[in-house]
């Protein structure tokens, strides 16, 4: 019955089924180069994690919807995006079952149990990644060194065991390494080249709003500039703006996760608040929290939590997005 209403609260589209699919296809296309880069840098295990995560997400959505007698919406492609994003947030050394459990949690607990696409209040992939990280901290540590081009090479786990270059000894990576992705990290967060290309594509195609990534990056730039005082110098190690912007999940988060239209504010002002807030939270966690040197996921999740409130405060009443969904329910 409920599925008959073609109104989801957030992707406001006319022909939902078709348009959501087109939208998701664009997102998948934008993520594809990064997926290829992750396989290039991290080899077969990256491919395996991507496949397991996507298959589990799709299967999870399919069986949940079958089991609860709903219309199966797997073909809209949103489960594929979630699975892919989740894999992007795993280290190459993660076992296959983490990808599977993570995808199932993202799809079932975070998304479907709250009503499916458009109704979840948290980014499913991000919430699941964080759950995995809090559950199996050591298995989720991104300490696999990249081995570009060596497809089937055995995984070498770096003994330093620090998550992302942020914890490394200063200046151990050049700017080019940071930019091209030749650094340890989660699968999809290392290669800034492909991430920026994909993000730009999404902005041009108007799939995502430029306001969130731009305000996110600008605020982060300013905050780290105030803190470190240098934009870039090789001697300052990680204590400079560019190093901070190019390490960890910041770029991936700013373009692909903070922009999720279901879990980010709808108004232009709200979106700028979202970007600024994400950067602010990220800065606080990175600067002061020694136990999680990388705070991007937590920062975005925190702003996800505040999104309904931001919407309430920034969306003018007559156009409140809550209304259509409410009236649709009575229909």
């Amino acid at each position: 019955m409920q599925r008959k209403l073609i109104v989801a609260s957030s992707p406001h589209l006319r022909n939902e089924g078709v348009s959501t699919r087109r939208l998701m296809l664009d997102v998948v296309l934008a993520m594809l180069p990064t997926a290829v880069a992750s396989v290039w840098f991290f080899g077969g295990s990256a491919l395996m994690l991507l496949v397991v995560a996507i298959l589990s997400a799709v299967a999870g959505e399919f069986f949940y919807q079958k089991h609860t007698h709903q219309k199966v919406t797997v073909s809209d492609g949103s489960a594929i995006v979630t699975g892919m994003l989740l894999a992007f947030n795993l280290p190459a050394s993660a076992p296959w079952w983490i990808a599977m459990i993570g995808s199932l949690i993202a799809i079932i607990l975070v998304k479907q149990m709250f009503g499916g696409l458009g109704n979840n209040f948290m980014n499913p992939a991000l919430a699941a990644r964080t759950i995995m990280m809090l559950s199996w901290t050591s298995l989720m540590a991104a300490n696999v060194l990249p081995h570009a081009g060596q497809w089937l090479a055995p995984q070498t786990v770096d003994a330093v065991a620090s998550a992302t270059p942020l914890g490394e000894s200063p200046a151990s990576y050049t700017l080019w390494q940071l930019f091209s992705g030749d650094i340890p990290g989660m699968l999809g967060e290392t290669c800034k080249l492909t991430l920026l290309a994909g993000g730009l594509y999404l902005i041009i195609r108007r799939v995502i709003d430029w306001r969130i990534p731009v305000s996110f990056l600008v605020t982060a730039f300013v905050l780290f500039w105030i803190k470190t005082g240098t934009i870039y110098s090789a001697e300052s190690g990680s204590e400079n703006v560019l190093y901070q912007l190019l390490s960890g999940g910041l770029i991936l988060g700013a373009f692909f996760m903070a922009t999720d239209y279901v879990t980010s504010p709808v108004s232009p002002l709200g979106r700028i608040i979202m970007g600024v807030g994400c950067a602010g939270m990220l800065f606080v966690i990175r600067a002061f929290n020694p136990s999680y040197p990388e705070g991007c996921s937590f920062a975005i999740l925190f702003m996800n939590v505040l999104t309904p409130l931001i919407d309430k405060l920034t969306v003018p009443k007559p156009f409140g997005y809550v209304k259509p969904a409410g009236s649709a329910k009575e229909a």
Binding site: Q2, L5, A8, S9, T68, M113, F114, G115, G116, G118, N119, F121, V305, L306, P308, L309, D311, K312, V322, A325, G326, K329
Partner: peptide
């Protein structure tokens, strides 16, 4: 923040069995 989330959930397509405390 939680109240704003719940206001949103109240008008969402959350399944009936999630209503109230479990949700």
């Amino acid at each position: 923040a939680f109240a704003a989330i719940r206001e949103r959930l109240a008008v969402s397509e959350m399944p009936k069995w999630m209503d109230g405390f479990p949700g």
